[in-house]
Design a protein around this nucleic acid. Sequence first.
DNA 1: GTTAGCACTCTCTCCCGAAGAGTGCTAACA
DNA 2: TGTTAGCACTCTTCGGGAGAGAGTGCTAAC
Lengths: 342, 342
Amino acid sequence: MLSGRKRAILKAIVSDYIQRAEPVGSRTLARRYNLGISPATIRNEMADLGEMGYLEQPHTSAGRIPSYKGYRYFVDSLMEAEQLSPADEERLSRALQQRLSKIDAVFSEASRVLSEVSQYVSLILTPIFGQQTFQQLRLVPLDSQFVVVLMVTDTGLVQNRVMEVPPGVSAAELDQIAQVFNKHLKGMSLEDLNSSFLQELYSVFSRRNRALQEFLADLITGFTFGEGEKVFLGGTTNILKQPEFNDVEKVRNLLQILEERDHLCRLLMDMASEDIAIKIGEENECLQMKDCSIVTASYEINGRRMGTIGILGPTRMDYARVISVVEYMQKLLSKTLGDILL
Amino acid sequence: MLSGRKRAILKAIVSDYIQRAEPVGSRTLARRYNLGISPATIRNEMADLGEMGYLEQPHTSAGRIPSYKGYRYFVDSLMEAEQLSPADEERLSRALQQRLSKIDAVFSEASRVLSEVSQYVSLILTPIFGQQTFQQLRLVPLDSQFVVVLMVTDTGLVQNRVMEVPPGVSAAELDQIAQVFNKHLKGMSLEDLNSSFLQELYSVFSRRNRALQEFLADLITGFTFGEGEKVFLGGTTNILKQPEFNDVEKVRNLLQILEERDHLCRLLMDMASEDIAIKIGEENECLQMKDCSIVTASYEINGRRMGTIGILGPTRMDYARVISVVEYMQKLLSKTLGDILL
DNA sequence: GTTAGCACTCTCTCCCGAAGAGTGCTAACA
DNA sequence: TGTTAGCACTCTTCGGGAGAGAGTGCTAAC
């Protein structure tokens, strides 16, 4: 455990650095914070903290900056929770209070306002289909050639797409297919939907040709991979305001990651297991993100954890504030989605 | 008109600058290109071209760079059409040859490969609904509370969303609504779909309450603004490789524009009126894009111009190459979409 | 009309020195 | 023994030349 004085110094250093983005020295620290001790004493303590791995020195005779370990300690046991200002709460709420008919519009608005209020990059993972169970399937023929496939999950999400109907399959037969699905799959987790069911289907429709079999296979893969999960991204340009991203090379590295939606998707899914998750710098598996931190929260639909919202910024981000923003949005989103879907 | 020699010199300068991104001087020009004249003569000609507004000088005693007018002249009458390499054609085709069930997947793949091959930023505007006519409406009730609204256009695009059914409206009544729509609107341009029809609808269902009226109004606005047009963006990071974007401030300006999807949408719609459109530097209304050029082409679905693909790069972009890429993708996309939708 | 020569201009880079900030060590102090 | 003042030292940053390099425009000759 760190002594009270070391804790106070570490806290002051991290806070100061978060605010000003510049290495902080003993003299400045003594001047700016009322620690009641002289720069010399602070220097001694700083040397200790440096040896213990909480602080780093960009070079001899620059001030100290927090190491990853320093941020972690700060977040875990020094930082004070911050109450979101009423103005910010207002901004967040209002964005979701508009009448947003499509669920995607909700996510897109949420991501926009999240990045605006936080001034960092916002990420939103749409509901994970694997977490839901099959409720019903509808096959709505548009004409003799195309059919609209509607799949409804237990949480009320509707997945839809247009498919080509194999030639010679009648509307009655489509109905029959839907019936088999609805009878056999109701309540089954979409994750578990595997090929054994497909075999069963084949046998039911065995008299039929290869085209139909392909159609059925496509139908099922569409459920699991179909629309899939998407990631909404907002405020990418905010990151460019941060002094640590004054280097175009760094910017490019980060933006490249943000362009790989699959990667982000996996990242957010991994973090979905916790209510609030914080990854600081090196804790990110991805090397290119070692200068960044991510704070995520999982939103719920009807009490079930369904997806994740997150904010990405430099390791030097204002954790207390970001956490309060994310938490507020988490509640807001859970409520809004519940209202729309239930 | 410019003399043959001036044309040759201008062409050499623009080509060289496009390739190397550095002001080009008379001596270098004479060395690199076999123009058969001495640097001194070139200098005279360059001075003329400068006075005529085709060239600019970053400062005295640097070489010349093309002005906006210089690029324009180059594009209009100096540039030689470039044949896309078989390898590139292959890459573009293959991306769209995958089985892509959802139309959005086609656009997303197209935008990805477009940016990869061009090494600039790619933009794709999804089909403009206003250009299409109403074909049919389906209202598929999921349960007593929600209904899936399916609207099919004459080009085979399906727009869908989930809406809440006003309490007390039966399935039969929904059917009736759909029938009225299908009877009155078939063949009508979605753009023209206005409130006069809504009045008519009200009178048909006049016995009904306010909730139903709101439902009907929402239904119609959904057609025109509903899903709306989307812009797919790819290869944003490519722009960062360009030396002209070594300045973070410039990058931020551009990325900010690219984040405003509505703005991009309008931009691409404006350019949709031509088969191939090229906007160079200052020709862009948007001030922040004065250092950029956009090359667009409109793709067709069943012979009707429906949307736009484009490539955005620095004014110093390789126009010949970009044009050939865009043209190729235009044909590819028109074909692919025709196949999927028809 | 074209070219060679030349003086001149402007940028870029490298280097140097001064300023500033901060450290670590030592010695004195409570 | 912990704390503090003092001091020499280190390292970065910034500004000011000096020199190199590239290119221009003008003039005079071909």
